[in-house]
Each structure stands twice: as C-alpha cells, then as structure tokens.
Amino acid sequence: MDALSLLLERRSQPRLSGPAPEGEALENIKQAALRAPDHAALTPWQFIVCQGKGRERLGNIFEQSAIENGKTDKEIERAPQLPLRAPMVIVAIAKYHENPKVPRVEQIASAGCAVMAMQMAAQAQGFNGIWRTGAYAQCEVVRNALNLAEDDELVGFLYLGTPVTSAPTPAKKAADEFFSHWS
C-alpha cells in the first residue's frame, strides 16, 4: 500500500485478534513512532507495550480505577477485560520536558503524532488498531499506577492486532467545510 492510499483510506479497527505485530513488524511500528515531529529533539514520549500478562496488569489498573472512582458493579466487572480486546495495547504517554521554545501542548501533539504513526505503520503491514482514550486516560489512579509526573499526559491506548472484519469505509468529508484559503 502506498503512503497516500494509506492516509486517505485510514480507518480504525476495533475488532482485533491475534496475531499481534512482532519481530520486524513491531520494530517498524516503534521506529515510526520515533519519527514523529519533535521540535528541539526532546523525544517527549514514553510507550508501554502490553501483551499477555501485561494486558492483565493494565486491566487490573483499570479495575482499581473503577473501584476507587465509585463505578457501578458492571463497570468494575468490565474494566479488567478492556485491554483484552486486542492482543497488544500500547500505552502512549507524553513526557513533558520544560523548554522555553517547545510548549507542553506541542509536546502532547508530538506524542499524538507518534500514536498515529504507529497505527499507520501497523496498517501498512497488514495489522490495524484503534486509538482509545476515555475516562481511564484521564484518571489519577491510572496516572499514578503508570508513574506519570504532574505535567505528563496519558495520550491514550493504541489497541493493535489483526483485523477480524473489514471496517466500513467512512463517508468522504467535504474538505471545504474544514479548510479556508487565504490568498
């Protein structure tokens, strides 16, 4: 798949099974993340690759979060199962580095670009995934369990694996609704 087709046909895939990327495919995904735009070469990222028992560990963190945040019994029961929806989950964290030329928001955007690069690299190699955020990405219990500093940001969870079905092709959007031109 050429790069332009990859970008224009990109779509998230929530239904995933094994195998997960491994070996050279996983290394390509990691390297794609490290090529994200990075003003001042701060490398403001940290990634945690969760597989096997690692997904269970992440699920236990979600369960503890649900308990400590007073979620319903159903939500508490569901929480540890969430990371098991894919054979791999990559936790993406923006690690803030104080720098007068690179504001925090730009460093978070850089980490976000790294997540998209990982998903595109996965898709280019026959895998796919979905980038999830939600309450667990904003939760202090989760942040503390992952040892985030106060200025760090949990950018999300990239679920990766082999697509079970074809994702529906989204309707093409009218670019003029989102772009204006100054001449």
Rank of each mutant, 00 (worst) to 15 (best):
E9K: 09
E9Y: 06
R11T: 05
Q13F: 00
G23C: 08
E24G: 09
E27I: 07
I29K: 02
A32P: 03
A40V: 08
Q46C: 05
V49T: 10
G54C: 13
G54M: 11
R57T: 12
I61C: 09
F62Y: 15
Q64Y: 01
T72V: 07
D73T: 13
K74C: 12
K74P: 06
E75G: 12
I76S: 05
E77R: 09
R78D: 15
P80R: 10
P87V: 04
M88P: 09
I90N: 10
V91H: 00
Y96S: 04
E98K: 04
K101Y: 05
P103Q: 09
R104F: 05
Q107A: 09
I108L: 09
I108S: 12
S110Y: 08
A114H: 10
A122H: 03
Q125G: 09
G126W: 06
N128H: 00
I130H: 01
I130W: 00
W131H: 13
T133G: 15
Y136L: 13
Y136P: 01
E140Q: 14
V142W: 02
E150R: 05
E153F: 00
V155F: 03
G156L: 00
Y159Q: 06
G161Q: 01
T162D: 11
V164Q: 13
P170M: 02
D176K: 13
H181V: 08
